[in-house]
Structure formats: C-alpha cells, structure tokens
Write a protein that binds this DNA or RNA. Structure first.
Length: 735
RNA sequence: AGCGGGGUGGGGUAGCUUGGAAAUCCCAUCAGGCUCAUAACCUGAAGAUCGUUGGUUCAAAUCCAACCCCCGCUACCA
C-alpha cells in the first residue's frame, strides 16, 4: 500500500469557480485521489478557499460589506458546487481559520528562527485620501516604456512590460484618483536565494515531472532568485507574528501554500488521531501531488519547496502536475442554454458526470485547450451518450426485457474469453495512464472498452440468440453485463455518479468505492432481479433548449451593396449585387422607398442562408433585413462600419444550414427602444421587456430578437449593435 | 513588443520527450450491415506532400535553425 497526499490549488474566494478551476486542478486531483483510494492506497485530498488578498477587499469596498463576508459567500457557494460535482475532498477548508493562522505563524517563526527572513525598508505609494498603502496593481500612471497612459503599477497592458510602480509617471490612485505619495515602509522578506542550490538539486532529481513544469522551473532558477517580501500593508489577511507589525498582514502567496499543511492538520484534528497528519508529511515514503494551472507553477516548485526546506523535516512535493489553460474564448456564456461556464450555474443544467466527462476529454494537460459549447454538446452526445451510455443501456434493457434477472453464465467460447480478457486489459491500461496522471489517455482507454462492448454486442447478436438458444443468449448477456460492471469500476474516478448507479442497477452489493478496483472481478449475482433500466444520460440539445437558440438558425452578415438594377419583369423590385464576403444576388421590393442611388454603396444586414428563390424569374440568394410598419420602412445597418461578410451572430452560434422562408417568418424581430439600463429593458412597441445588451444608450433604437417576455439586442463582434437608417417607431416588425 | 500555446485529411484533435513501413480518435461525406438500444450501434471507403524553407540522419510529423501565420494573456486567473 502506498501513501499519497493529493493537493489541489486553492480557488480564490472572489467569485464562483468556473470550468478553468475544475479542469485545471480540482478535477484531475479528484480523479487521481479516487483512483488511489480504489487501488487501496492510503490517500487523502485537501484544499480550500483562498480567502485573503486585495481583490477581495476591493470587492468588499464596492459592496460596502466586510471582506470576510465576500469571501465567506463565495466559499460557501463554491464548497457546495465542489461537492455537487463529486470532488471528493477529505477536507475543503479555507484560509480564514484559527488553525491556518497558527500554522502560518509557526512556519513564519521557524523560518525567522533559522535565519531565512530579513527586514528591509522600501518605499511604497500611500494614498492619503484612501488612507492606505496601495498595492502596485492599484496604482495607475503612464508607462515609462511605451508612454501609454493607462499602465498599472505591476504591469503595462499595452506593452506588456512588468513594471515597478515607482517608475510610473503621473502616478495616481486607481481607487480614488488622487495623487499618492511615496512613503517608507518596512517589510519582511524571504531570502529565496538561500535555497537556490538545494532547489536546483531537487528539481533536477524530479525527472517524472511534466517536461514543461520542470524546464520552466529550472529556467527560473537559472535566471536567479531574489528576496521576496512576505508581508504587505493591508488589513485583510493573516496577522504577522512580530511586534510593531499589527498594521500589516502576511502576503497571500506566502500564506496560501502553507494551507496545504494547515489543512492536513485540520483534517487530522477532526479525525480520531490528531497526529495522523504526520504520516502524510513526515513519512518520506508518502508522495504528495499538487494539481494546479500553469500560472501557479513557481509557487509550487520554488516558493513552497523553499519554505519546506527552510523549516525542514517535511516532504517536498513529489509531483507538481500543472495543466495548461482551458481558454474560454468568447464562450463565457451560452445564450441558448442560458448558462454560464461557472460551475454553480452549469450544475443547474447538466449532470455532474456530463460536465466531468467533457472537462476530462478536453483537459489541457500538455497544451491549451478551447472550451466551446458546440464541442461540449458534440462530445457529450457522440461519446458519452452514444458510446458509453448507450452500451450500458442496450445491454441492461435487453437483459431486463428478456430475462428480468442476471442470466447465468454458461460455457464461454473464444469470443467471450477474448472479451473477458479485454476487460482486464482495459483496466490495466486505465490504471497505467492514471498512475502517470495522464487523464485524457486514461479516459480514452475507458471509452475504448465501451466501444468494444458495442462491437461485442453486435457480433454475438443476442436478439437472434434469444429465439434460437436462450441459454447461450444468457451467457453473452452475462458477459456484456460484466463489461458494464467493469466500465463502472474503471470509470469510477471519472464518472463516480454513473458508476455507482450502474453498480447498484446490476444488483451488486455495497458501492464501487467500497469494492475497489478489484471490484471488476467480483462475480455478478446470477438470478438477481433487475429494475427497468433508465438511460444514464440524456443528450445535450443546445438548439432546442429554448432561449434565443432558435435565432442561431440565422446566418446574418454585413453586406455592402455593389450595384442596383431595376428588375426586368417587375415594377416594385430591384435586383442588387451585394458583397457579403462573397458577391450574391438579392431581389428586393424597395422601389417604393429608395432610389437606386440611395441604395448603392449602402451597408446592410443580410440573411445569407435563406433558401434561394426565383422572384419573377430572377434568383435571389438572400434577403436584406428591414423594419416596416404601415407606411414606413427602414433598413438595418451596423452602428459602426463593419467589413462586408462580418457575422452578426448576437453572441449565438450561427448556423450554415439553409433555412426556408417559412422558418424565417416564425421568428419575431422588432425595433426596440432601450428604455432602462440597469436592469436593461427595451420597449418593443407598447411594452417594455427585459433584455440582454452590452453597452447601449438609453433612448436609442436597436434591432431586437424577441422571445416571449425577453429580448436580445442584435449585435456583431465587439458588441457593435444594429440600428436603422431612417426613423421608425418601436414595435415595427423586421423582415 | 513581451509571455505562453499552436499550425497534422473538410472541421476538431492524438502522436512529437525516447526519429523507423506515413498517422489516432470524434464529427461531417459516401457505401454497406443490424434492428437490442437515446435516429443508436457495427463494418468498410474516400480524403493529409503532418505551416514554409533549409539542416542533421541510412531514416524526421517527430531533432536543430530560420521564417510565415493563428490563438490566449484586456481576470469568472486554474
């Protein structure tokens, strides 16, 4: 039996956790610890919310509540989400506890005792108005490198240079705008250079680390370490156990990593043996794994090991499993599902295992990955639902219909034996990958088994056997159910909820967790009665899910009119050539409203995926959007000039599929006057409804997509909204 | 500009650390099968000079160099 301590980076209690936190640290840590428990290792997982630091203070100031209240709120929210997602912490605590404070104090004093700390006086900006020292990032000014006016004290966003706030020109306080003055202040520094040699030797020896983690760390060490301040002039944080430091607090980056140790102690204190933390920190055979995102590497491969080396006697990280980033791109929010990528929100719409599946399948283990709703739906439906879920369901429901119990297993032929072999092979493959922290690969092996299950089921064709040889049919079903059981066991680290359900539905005793990895060899109970199976997962339907999804059938683009000709066979029609990224022909009935000269060169909004139709003998390949009431007509146009061909997707995922005119007519688009801003309301002709809009000016008229009692303001990239070229009353229909 | 990631069949990707018969998986396409299952599953086919140019080598998607493009880092910071 091995001993394993699993640590997951501490989410910051300044907002709800999102897919990035989960895929970067919480989920891999959970999968890893679940796997270790299943194979019988002595494993625990601890972490908690990082409650301190300036951003929380700022949020609190804005809301006019205490920092503690803000931090608590998100800690509670996130703890609940973490639990619902099935992240199986032995302890998920936070850093605002007495225990943490005292452990941090001990560590601090121990380092001081051993001479690894020193005091130095530096000058820092102090804002007289706010009556506080300003962290670098709360000082604004002109960048000394590129002269751009909006640089922050820690970094210039324009040229990207790291800055020292003292170098900024025209420094002013970001919070109140006053000019701060420089004041001397004393701080305590950790003498990191003391540890350079031992850290180098340590990192050199860690050949099992992911290559980018190791080389990045060696690189930093090579560039040289400097003393780092571990105290700050702030009021929200862990007190400094030193006289005359009562107006200062310990800097979060120093204090939060110590949380791993304090959390283990807190876990031990709550158990029957309060010294049990020692077996995870002092027993040198215990391996500690840290799961985090790449921005956190130095804290775990340099600073935390330096602190641990400084106090001595405690295990250094065995592995620092850093993930890259899951980029969220423009997909922070799904308009169609009405759901954002934060976890509490996602959990209201999707089963935890569905979320877990996608986040593992797309985990940024070795390079950045991209979150997209499309991909989410596609992978869920074609992999988890169609391959895994469907196999389990077809095997169970066929058995249920024809036997109602677990059929007994007769003699196995070669194909059956190969299938049984395939089960144990799959288990080994999954275990091999998981022990190397290669989660995608492990999941792949699991899915391969599910696919094999489908192949086996097809090849033995129980629906034929049931009529010709019922005993044989029972045998192949028995083997199929063995595969389901194996999927439950091997899939348990990834899909714990599904696993337990399969296990129970198969009539197995206890739980997968209790049975452990070897549970796949526990025989099925022949004759055990089955309940009527219910599919494990439902398909994710992004388009039918209501909301504004229906509007995503429109492929709207900016179009520039190239030429206008009168229609040869009609009085009211024009034939126009329009550039929508490609030249197309459009026939439209504008003759009563616009002259050819007025139209020529205009920039409009064109529906580009309308089924082409012949209008009086001329083929029209699209349609321009216009608002009209009884006597007036106005054309839709972007409020700012956009290049022809630019998508006007309103934040939805525009389709390419052609739509019929009939389908188009079902949609309700209107002219709306933005009535109020917060919360935004829009008047769509006699009634004001809630709407979604980015920016916007009250009193202005915008094109709105209407759905029952809500509206979405039509917009292109960067929130460029769609307006009208002539005045037209609110409520006019857009066609 | 800096930092980070990447450019592999129509789209999305695996493989690259430890070079070896040209390549994984999902989707889309085409053809077939099955009818137990959530229009699902199974089989087969078509389709890629592995960003460009040089280099190392008996051999390069894989190593080296240069270049060209894309994306994220404007905080829901893992």
């Amino acid at each position: 039996m091995d001993r394993v301590l699993v640590c997951s980076a501490w989410p910051y209690a300044n907002g709800p956790i999102h897919v990035g936190h989960v895929t970067g640290s919480l989920l891999p840590a959970d999968i890893f610890v679940r796997f270790n428990r299943l194979i019988g290792n002595d494993a625990i997982m601890v972490s908690g919310s990082d409650m301190h630091g300036a951003p929380i203070t700022v949020s609190a100031d804005k809301e006019k509540v205490s920092p503690e209240k803000v931090a608590r709120r998100y800690h509670d929210l996130n703890s609940k989400a973490i639990e619902m997602l099935g992240i199986s912490f032995d302890l998920f605590t936070h850093t605002h506890t007495k225990n943490h404070e005292s452990v941090v104090s001990e560590v601090f004093l121990e380092l001081q005792e051993k001479g690894h700390l020193k005091r130095m006086t530096t000058s820092q900006y102090y804002c007289g108005e706010c009556d506080r020292f300003l962290p670098d990032r709360y000082v604004d000014g002109t960048c000394p490198h590129c002269e751009s006016a909006n640089a922050r004290g820690d970094q210039c966003d324009v040229c990207g240079m790291d800055l020292d706030a003292k170098d900024l020109k025209d420094a002013h306080c970001q919070l109140c705008g006053c000019v701060p003055d420089l004041r001397d202040t004393e701080h305590i520094f950790l003498k990191l250079p003391d540890f350079t040699d031992s850290l180098k030797a340590y990192v050199e020896s860690c050949r099992h680390w992911r290559p980018h983690v190791r080389s990045f760390t060696l690189n930093v060490l090579e560039e040289g370490l400097t003393d780092r301040p571990i105290t700050r002039d702030i009021s929200w944080g862990v007190p400094v156990p030193v006289d005359s430091y009562d107006t200062k607090r310990i800097y979060v980056w120093f204090e939060a990593v110590i949380g791993y140790l304090s959390a283990t102690k807190e876990w031990a204190a709550a158990s029957s043996d309060s010294t049990s933390w020692e077996r995870f920190w002092k027993d040198s055979s215990c391996r500690s794994y840290y799961f985090l995102g790449k921005d956190n590497i130095v804290f775990h491969t340099i600073i935390w090991p330096a602190i641990l080396t400084g106090i001595g006697g405690l295990n250094l990280p065995y592995d620092v499993v850093a993930n890259q980033f899951m980029n969220l791109g423009g997909q922070k929010f799904s308009k169609s599902m009405g759901v954002s990528i934060n976890i509490p929100d996602l959990l209201t719409k999707f089963q935890p295992d569905v979320i877990r599946y996608y986040l593992v399948a797309n985990m940024p283990e070795f390079k950045d990955s991209e979150f997209s709703w499309d991909d989410f739906a596609q992978r869920t439906n074609s992999e988890l639902v169609a391959t895994y879920g469907n196999f389990v369901h077809r095997a169970m429901s066929f058995t249920y219909k024809n036997f109602h119990t677990i059929p007994s297993r007769g003699p196995l032929d070669d194909r059956d034996k190969a299938a049984m072999k395939r089960i144990s092979d799959a288990g080994e493959a999954v275990a091999r990958s998981l022990s190397k922290c290669e989660f995608r690969e492990a999941l792949r092996s699991l899915m391969d088994l599910a696919q094999f299950g489908n192949q086996y089921f097809d090849s033995v064709a129980p629906w034929t056997l049931v009529r010709s040889d019922k005993a044989r049919c029972g045998t192949v079903l028995h083997v199929s159910l063995e595969m389901c059981k194996a999927l439950a066991v091997f899939g348990c680290p990834f899909l714990p909820f599904s696993s337990e359900r399969i296990w129970t539905d198969l009539g197995m005793e206890g739980s997968v967790e209790a049975a452990g990895w070897k549970g796949f060899e526990v025989p099925l109970k022949e004759g055990a009665s089955l309940k009527k199976p219910v599919p494990l997962y439902a398909k994710v339907d992004m388009s039918a899910a209501g909301g504004f999804a229906r509007y995503s059938m429109l492929n709207l683009r900016v179009g520039k009119i190239l030429s206008v000709e009168p229609h040869p066979n009609a009085d009211k029609l024009y034939v126009m050539k329009v550039d929508v990224g490609r030249p197309i022909t459009i026939v439209s009935g504008l003759k009563d409203y616009y002259t050819a000269e007025e139209l020529s060169g205009k920039t409009l909004i064109i529906l580009t995926n309308l089924e082409p139709a012949k209008l009086r003998g001329v083929k029209s390949e699209g349609m321009l959007l216009a608002a009209e009431d009884a006597e007036r007509l106005a054309l839709l146009t972007p409020e700012k000039d956009l290049a022809p061909g630019t998508q006007i997707s309103s934040g939805l995922e525009a389709a390419d599929k052609q739509i019929s005119y009939k389908e188009f007519q079902k949609l309700d688009m209107r002219v709306g006057v933005l009535a109020e801003l917060s919360p935004p309301k829009i008047d769509i002709g006699g009634k004001a409804v809630g709407c979604e809009v980015a920016g916007g000016v009250a009193g202005e008229k915008y094109a709105a997509l209407v759905l029952d009692d809500s509206a979405l303001v039509m917009h292109g990239p960067d929130g460029v909204k769609i307006v009208f070229d002539r005045d037209i009353p609110a409520g006019a229909r857009i066609r």
